[in-house]
Design a protein around this nucleic acid. Structure first.
Ligand SMILES: [Zn+2]
Ligand SMILES: [Zn+2]
Ligand SMILES: [Zn+2]
Ligand SMILES: [Zn+2]
Lengths: 144, 144
DNA sequence: GGGCGAATGTTACTTTATAACATCAGTAGC
DNA sequence: GCTACTGATGTTATAAAGTAACATTCGCCC
């Protein structure tokens, strides 16, 4: 899916969910899309400032929070960053793999494999939310 | 295991691993133990300052990093916090469950259930490190 | 008791995130 | 049209989290 299609799909996605991908939110999403992999909030802020002059942290954080809320981005706690989700349409549960060496991230689907964890949580009287796991390790390139 | 036994075991644990639970590190560990569940670095810093006058952030961060390194604490990225691990002796992989409502955390063992995730990661040419998952959801008390 | 490495102290700063309040834009009802 | 409301954005200020860099101290070996 190219960038334009992605944005269009994202807009429709928000619409269906009863909210709006406003110009600002769209701009922030575009800025995130331009980066490979994880982006930091303050990087987005800097980019935004380049495009529209002044902008303050809350502007960016609010937009990012919205995008995460809508499932368009995932937050990567381990890196204080954000990644684009490119299959926000489907109800997915995924695992975000963060390479300890190069910092690259990838997202893999994991619905089936999560069943085991859900069982463990159940046994502990805990109800897991739908969510994205973040795990660390070594990517193919760094494993050598 | 009571606090004294825990500290003694922790000391032995470090010894076996070829490093030392110094007075400062021990004091920080004690401060973490005094709290239920997750503690923040700056909370520990404040506590430490109460006990010994001045102390600066690096003092606490260094001690916490050491304790995490030794497996005595786990870092909870989602909360920028730390929890005591009370089975640091065994080679364990665990899942830390964070309640979205009350913020309480619990740690459950999950070695078997992780096998499925490991398979998924393998399929993505990614080697998972030994690690602790953090997942969110609702604890028993908040589920009602 | 001099030299070495690990640990801790100290200063200053960076990065990340939010609270609180002001303003603006769209829109439903009059 | 005007008003009142709601959601979004702007603005200011500050809180919270984390680290770099260098100084000092401590324990230990020779
Ligand atoms: Zn996703
Ligand atoms: Zn890598
Ligand atoms: Zn543990
Ligand atoms: Zn709870």
């Amino acid at each position: 899916m190219n960038r334009t299609d992605y944005l269009q799909a994202a807009e429709a996605h928000c619409e269906r969910r009863g909210c709006k991908l406003t110009a600002l939110r769209r701009q922030v999403l575009e800025l995130v899309l331009r980066h490979e992999g994880v982006v930091k909030a303050y990087q987005v802020l800097a980019d935004l400032q380049k495009e529209r002059g002044i902008a303050a942290p809350p502007t960016v954080y609010r937009a990012l929070d919205f995008l995460v809320e809508q499932g368009l981005l995932h937050r990567v706690d381990a890196l204080n960053g954000f990644v684009v989700c490119d299959h926000f349409e489907c109800q997915h549960e995924s695992m975000i793999l963060v390479c300890e060496t190069c910092g690259k991230v990838q997202e893999v689907d994991v619905i089936a494999a999560l069943a085991g964890l859900r069982d463990v949580a159940d046994a502990a009287d805990f109800t897991l939310s739908r969510q994205n796991l973040t795990l660390t390790g070594l990517c193919k390139a760094c494993r050598i």
